[in-house]
Simulated scan of single mutants.
Amino acid sequence: MSLKKNTFIALIPARAGSKGVINKNFKKVGGKPLIFFTISEAKKVRSIDQIYVSSDSIEIINYSAKMLVSSLLRPKKYSKDDSTAADVVKHFLGKLPERLRAIDPYLVYLQPTSPLRKATHINQSITLVNKLNLNSLVSVRKIDSLLYKSLNIKNNNKIVTNFKENFSISNRQSLPDAYTPNGAIYIFKMSSFLKKGSIPINGSYAFIMNNEESLDIDSTEDFVRLGEVFQS
C-alpha cells in the first residue's frame, strides 16, 4: 500500500444483467469485452492503490483475475435492474478490510459503460482532488439549456414549471448553462458516502468532459457508435 497522503481505491461495477443489451459489460467490441477498456485505463493510473471489480458474474470475476485486478462476487440481491450504485458501494465497503476503512480512502467509481474515459481523465481528476483537497468530484458533460424550459402537467391539466417560471419564456441565449453527470468518473471519500448514504453529487467538484468522451453505452446503437470511434 502506498504511503502517500491519500489512498484511492477504484471500484468497477459490472453486473451480468442488463435491460438494453444482455451481458452488456462483457459484450465484445474490437475483440475485447466492454469491461476491458475501463480496467485497462484504471491500471495505467499510478495514483490508484488498488482496483476492484464488483460483479455477480463468475465469467467477469475470472476475467478480472486474468487482468490482474482484485474482484468481489456481488450477491444477486445487489445486482438487479433496480439495484442502485449506492447498493453496490455499500456492499463493497462492507467487505473492505478494516485497515483500509480506518484510513478513510477515496473511492474512484468507474462504470464500464464509459469506455472512452481514459487514464488521463482519471489522473486529472485525482490530481484535482489532491490539489484542492476535495471531498468529492463528478464528471459531467454539457447539455441543451432548453432543459430549463421543461414543464410538468399536474392534476386538471395544470402546468407547473420545473425551474424558474421566467425561464419558460426566455430565449435560449439567456438561459444558464446546463450539465449532467456523464457516468464516467465519481470520486468521493468513504466517510462522505457513509454520511450521505449515497454517492455525493451536490457540492461535488465538476470535471467537465466533452460529448464524445462521455459516450455512455446503453443500447446496441451505442455499441455501433463505439465501434465506429475505434475504427476512425
Results as ranks from 00 to 15, higher is better:
residue 74 R to C: 08
residue 7 T to V: 09
residue 208 I to Q: 01
residue 148 Y to I: 01
residue 199 I to G: 08
residue 208 I to K: 07
residue 160 V to W: 00
residue 140 V to T: 10
residue 23 N to K: 11
residue 44 K to Y: 07
residue 195 K to P: 12
residue 170 S to Y: 09
residue 1 M to C: 13
residue 105 P to Q: 03
residue 153 I to S: 00
residue 229 V to W: 13
residue 72 L to D: 01
residue 98 E to A: 05
residue 31 G to C: 09
residue 125 S to A: 15
residue 127 T to S: 11
residue 109 Y to E: 04
residue 25 N to Q: 04
residue 28 K to S: 07
residue 175 L to I: 02
residue 207 F to L: 14
residue 57 S to P: 03
residue 183 G to A: 10
residue 68 L to G: 00
residue 83 S to N: 02
residue 26 F to Q: 04
residue 194 L to R: 15
residue 192 S to L: 07
residue 21 V to S: 00
residue 195 K to L: 14
residue 91 H to A: 03
residue 228 E to I: 11
residue 125 S to W: 13
residue 16 A to E: 12
residue 15 R to M: 00
residue 97 P to V: 00
residue 218 D to E: 10
residue 217 I to P: 08
residue 205 Y to K: 14
residue 11 L to R: 08
residue 109 Y to N: 07
residue 165 E to F: 07
residue 6 N to W: 05
residue 164 K to I: 04
residue 101 R to H: 02
residue 188 F to N: 14
residue 211 N to V: 04
residue 206 A to L: 15
residue 5 K to C: 05
residue 28 K to C: 14
residue 68 L to H: 11
residue 8 F to M: 05
residue 226 L to N: 02
residue 161 T to G: 00
residue 208 I to G: 01
residue 65 A to R: 09
residue 214 S to N: 12
residue 202 N to E: 13
residue 155 N to V: 00
residue 188 F to P: 13
residue 208 I to E: 09
residue 56 D to R: 09
residue 108 V to Y: 06
residue 35 I to L: 10
residue 65 A to D: 09
residue 35 I to T: 06
residue 26 F to A: 11
residue 70 S to W: 08
residue 82 D to S: 06
residue 192 S to D: 15
residue 62 N to I: 00
residue 37 F to T: 01
residue 113 T to W: 07
residue 195 K to Q: 12
residue 169 I to V: 14
residue 219 S to H: 02
residue 4 K to E: 14
residue 166 N to E: 14
residue 211 N to M: 04
residue 77 K to Y: 07
residue 98 E to C: 04
residue 150 S to M: 15
residue 203 G to L: 06
residue 136 S to C: 08
residue 37 F to N: 04
residue 87 D to F: 03
residue 119 A to G: 07
residue 210 N to F: 09
residue 218 D to A: 10
residue 84 T to M: 00
residue 90 K to D: 11
residue 58 I to M: 06
residue 162 N to Y: 01
residue 86 A to L: 07
residue 18 S to T: 02
residue 81 D to Q: 03
residue 108 V to D: 08
residue 71 S to E: 03
residue 61 I to P: 07
residue 94 G to Q: 06
